[in-house]
């Protein structure tokens, strides 16, 4: 099943690009959900059908692929916002930046002192590229929902890296980390709801009353 890993990681990178270039929030949330669901397959593909891998895959699929996107979709339905308008940096420039950082990630990963068995795989560069894309989304967008998506992509990138190291992470800890992520997004969703109620927008540039 190892030959399926690279196409899967490629799909993850394409989803990064799509999210960076798209203005439609619903579509963005859906593709990030697909990204999470694809990543849930990763432990199964790379470690086989062990108990640990199956449990991790099931949790990741439930949280990243189903529950969190559902929470976010519900949140934007409530605040009735469909599109990301006027990002701080335009869609095309962020897309280009995303492509550049992805290329950079591939070049950089070659220089890293990786373990011999990881030298040829796409794991590390994909993890780096996904983390960078998440950061780009966090920095360049104004809507609170898109910033949460950026945070999720950052976590997805870390997840890819974590799959390489599942020996170090006992099942319970992994479950706890994913649960923290879920509760985190849940709390953020509540805050977004409050922001929209108080400010009648979820653009975070209105949140500037507190400064020196």
């Amino acid at each position: 099943m190892m030959e399926l890993i690279n196409p899967l990681l490629l799909a993850v990178i394409l989803i990064n690009f799509y999210t960076l270039g798209s203005a439609r929030l619903v579509a963005c949330i859906r593709v990030v959900a697909i990204q999470g669901a694809l990543l849930a397959l990763l432990p199964l593909l790379s470690h086989g059908m062990t108990f640990h891998a199956m449990l991790l895959a099931a949790e990741a699929f439930c949280f990243k692929g189903v529950v969190i996107p559902w929470l976010l979709l519900r949140a934007i339905r409530r605040v009735r916002i469909r599109r990301e308008m006027e990002p701080i940096v335009g869609f095309v420039p962020t897309l280009i930046l995303g492509v550049l950082t992805t290329v950079g990630a591939f070049l950089f990963a070659d220089l890293l002192p990786l373990a011999p068995e990881h030298h040829d795989g796409m794991f590390v560069p994909t993890a780096l590229a996904t983390m960078f894309s998440g950061f780009l989304l966090l920095i360049t967008r104004r809507k609170a929902i898109t910033q949460i998506l950026g945070y999720l992509m950052l976590e997805n990138g870390i997840f890819i890296f974590a799959v390489l190291l599942s020996a170090a992470m006992p099942v319970m800890v992994e479950a706890g980390i994913l649960l923290d992520l879920l509760v985190g997004v849940f709390v953020m969703g509540i805050v977004v709801n409050q922001i929209s109620r108080e400010f009648s927008t979820i653009n975070t540039e209105r949140l500037t009353a507190l400064k020196e």
Binding site: M188, Q194, A209, L210
Partner: peptide, 17 residues
């Protein structure tokens, strides 16, 4: 209130990242 929402959002996002 508005100010505490702003503080909470910044805290939550910055610390989570």
């Amino acid at each position: 209130n508005r100010l505490s929402i702003e503080a909470t959002w910044k805290y939550l996002l910055l610390c989570s990242v």
